[in-house]
Amino acid sequence: MQRSVLVLVIMSVIMLAFLPWIASDVMLQFAINTLLLATLAQSWNILGGFAGYVSFGNSVFYGLGTYGTAIAMAQFGLPFWVGLMLGALLAVICALIVGLPILRLRGPYFAIATLGLSGVMGAIVSNMDIAGANIGLILPLTRADPMFYELSLGLLVVTTVCVAWLSMSRFGMALIAIREDEDAAGTMGVNTTRYKVAALVLASLFTSIAGGIHAYWITFVDPASAFDPTLNVRMVIMAVFGGSGTVFGPVIGSFLLSTIYELLAFWISTAAALLFGVVIVLAVLFMPKGIADLALAKEPGWRYFLRNVREHRL
């Protein structure tokens, strides 16, 4: 990584860390949401962007993180950090158990199987008494938005540092080889199963912690929001919009899309989701490799957009 980029990133993080002292309550809440979403997108990027395994089921890990924290705090009165660890542990165990069979699938089969898993998990949780069944759980109330903000920021930084390390490591190279051609990677000595499962575990870890933070912040969890299928799609879109398989793409994509959505929701509340859909369609059409690729493109804007259409049209 270039030194100038590094300096810029560190400066931005330091400036962001001071946000709670200047931002309004509403803005801080928006910021927490955005940071958590960016963490989800960045975690998705580990398996989806680097290894090319498009998961629509990371909400399973998010939900387990949410519920691990909620159960620990609401049912057993344990401290927050124990809850976070419990949630993370549940998610990692789930990733290990589920990963082996499911990572044998490829392409759309993997994508939809993961989507299915999140549905199955939601149904299981909503039938468990310890998880408050359909009603959900209420966590102890804490009014400490600045703390949640700094936690979320810290988590995003850790996740991104991990991805940056990944992009320069042997592990990352294995994932990229798997993305480019899994069979060829295997014959070249890459233990594809091990690296795929490791990537899933890593993704599940960060995703579940984000879920745990969100649960304590909102102080309420229920199956519908914890295993929300649209959350899956949102994180994928943010990662792809920014540039999947890059270090900063998913973060930038999340920041931009969250802001766009928030502004749309502010100006024209009913049509926000509609316009969001339009943004997705246009983004896929004109810049399928994301903002990161657009930023590096040699030709000016419109020619770049046309080239993408030309390359992919029939």
Binding site: V54, V309, E311, H312
Partner: peptide, 8 residues
């Protein structure tokens, strides 16, 4: 317009 693009 995008039918030849990546599956994702």
């Amino acid at each position: 317009l995008i039918v030849r693009g990546a599956l994702l």
